[in-house]
């Protein structure tokens, strides 16, 4: 059963209360949100299986803290989409603004367009696939998970990186402190193949380069003072 909520007549808070209750009911229902008009914090805090399609662009913090639910935005997303996501799938048909997937612990964030600055900042286990380009300072202090970029990456990719894995098919404008290109081993190609399939991305794992932490900033070292 599909339920449609129209935001020209249903206030944002009522929409979110309805979606959150449906998620908690564990019934895996399908919801369509019409006329989102760039509203903030849409479909956030969903804590259970639910399918939500938002028919247009969203504002700040869409699908934040998502757990198990599947949220699709048929448009562009504002800053902080899928922030602190735990599991589930968030798909953005258009572009995503800054800090997409920030601090995400798990699940898949699939961005069909471009993501701007600070994509995946401090990610902690989320997988992010960006079909276009990403902006500067992406994956800053990223701890765990995979960031896959089919296009180009901006300045200072992976600055102060921990153990997240970064895969970029296009060019990287510059690498951040302690981020280096690393060997692509068979297990990485396997991970990449799975993620590209999940995201419906038209690319081959062999076309990508892998970047990761040089692990020189983990502990203070006087010889690296100029890198701090």
């Amino acid at each position: 059963m599909t339920t449609t909520l129209d935001m020209t007549s249903t206030p944002l808070r009522d929409v979110n209360v309805t979606l959150q209750a449906a998620a908690r009911a564990q019934a895996n229902e399908t919801y369509v949100i019409a006329n989102p008009r760039g509203a903030h914090a849409m479909a956030c805090g969903l804590d259970g299986p639910l399918s939500v399609t938002i028919k247009g662009p969203t504002g700040y913090y869409c699908a934040g803290m998502n757990k198990e639910a599947s949220v699709t935005v048929e448009g562009s997303a504002g800053p902080g989409v899928a922030e602190n996501m735990m599991s589930g799938v968030v798909t953005i048909e258009g572009d995503a603004s800054q800090y997409a997937g920030a601090t995400g612990h798990g699940g898949l964030l699939n961005i069909k367009g471009n993501a701007s600055s600070r994509c995946g900042i401090s990610m902690k286990g989320i997988d992010i696939v960006v079909h276009g380009n990403i902006g500067h300072m992406s994956a800053f202090m990223a701890q765990k998970g995979n960031l896959v970029v089919l296009g180009d990456a901006g300045d200072a990719l992976g600055d102060s990186l921990y153990e997240a894995r970064l895969f970029v098919r296009g060019s990287v404008k510059s690498l951040g402190a302690d981020c280096i290109e690393k060997e692509m081993r068979p297990e990485h190609l396997e991970t990449l193949k799975t993620l590209l399939e999940q995201a419906g991305a038209d690319a081959k794992p062999e076309e990508f380069k892998r970047y990761g932490s040089a692990r020189k900033l983990y502990n203070f070292n006087i010889d690296h003072a100029d890198e701090y």
Partner: peptide
Amino acid sequence: EYRAFADLPGIEAARV
């Protein structure tokens, strides 16, 4: 923010 565009004519088909 995009919200400010919501009432502009033809925004659904605009390049954003």
